[in-house]
Design a protein around this nucleic acid. Sequence first.
DNA 1: CAAGGCATGTAAATCGTTACATGATTTA
DNA 2: TAAATCATGTAACGATTTACATGCCTTG
Lengths: 184, 184
Amino acid sequence: MTLQYALLGFLNYGPMTGYDLKKLLDTSTQMFWHAELSQIYPQLKKMEKEGLVTVMCEPQAGKPDRKYYTITPHGRAVLLQWLSEPLDEVLPDKDPVLLHLFFAGALNKQVILSQLRLQLELRRAYLSRVEGEVAGFIQETIRVTGQKRDGLFWELIRRYGAEQTRTSIAWLEEAIQLIEKELS
Amino acid sequence: MTLQYALLGFLNYGPMTGYDLKKLLDTSTQMFWHAELSQIYPQLKKMEKEGLVTVMCEPQAGKPDRKYYTITPHGRAVLLQWLSEPLDEVLPDKDPVLLHLFFAGALNKQVILSQLRLQLELRRAYLSRVEGEVAGFIQETIRVTGQKRDGLFWELIRRYGAEQTRTSIAWLEEAIQLIEKELS
DNA sequence: CAAGGCATGTAAATCGTTACATGATTTA
DNA sequence: TAAATCATGTAACGATTTACATGCCTTG
């Protein structure tokens, strides 16, 4: 169901194909939402049947037609309805890395340390991407589209990701030190 | 597949029933992993067929038998194998709250602010639970079970949750101020 | 006396991933 | 010339949720 709202959210900016939507999911929301084409295409079909979007085919030579989906007034109403719902969830609920760590006591010190060091590396790399590329991409998108109001939220979310990652990094550094000292 | 490792991880402490495992998932790992009984029971059955666990039935009057599952040497090997794998994931990948916020530009200022204020409230409540109840529960569990080594990881994960939540809170406070000032 | 805990499950539906299929064009 | 991009999809499988089913015992 949530994927539906993600698609409606993007279609609210203008008509697009499933392929276009996939690219937007990959470049804009991949840190907190994504989907495969094999999920997107059937979802769009379902949304059309429910009157949330309409389709227009643009023939192409040698390729399948581009199928442009346009959000309907009803689709827009459904999107706004969802967006207006109170944000009453507390946390994203599955994190395999933490589950891993929860049982890590069964491993020896060196294996655990190398796992944590890999995480540290990955998160540092991620942070530098968020502070570099991602920040630039958002500014560029705001410049090109003139979406200042929406851009405020994009930038806010980017900063959230950066702050969470910084916190992870600091925690990993401490955890590594602690384990080096305290664990036998 | 991950649920399997969660169950093996707990069964590695000793034989248990599906019902017991559900309670452990609810009290110990609910912040980063959980499952319903309707998923746990079939999963255990499957694990038995694969030789990861064995079952022993303890008859009860008026209730279904308690079915105790015991981890096998093979099960332990499979668990250790999984635990030893490098932690190469970067982030938990779906967060409906962020997706919501990503499209929040379509809403009016007051609705957005009340949504963010609700999030702030929820995260503050969550933090106080993590710093209170949860911390106490971990200390108590370490005291009762004598699992000092494992307890180190439980406490580390708890602190991770607390730090991430503190970061969320600070970010939400800033975001609310910014939106109050900058947004029309 | 109703609600919740104990203890087991099954069935149906939804959500999501991976693999497969086509076929032209562009890039390395 | 191999791989990636464009553009559509289907099929099979696996993961997860929700609803249903039983029946006793304990707590409010």
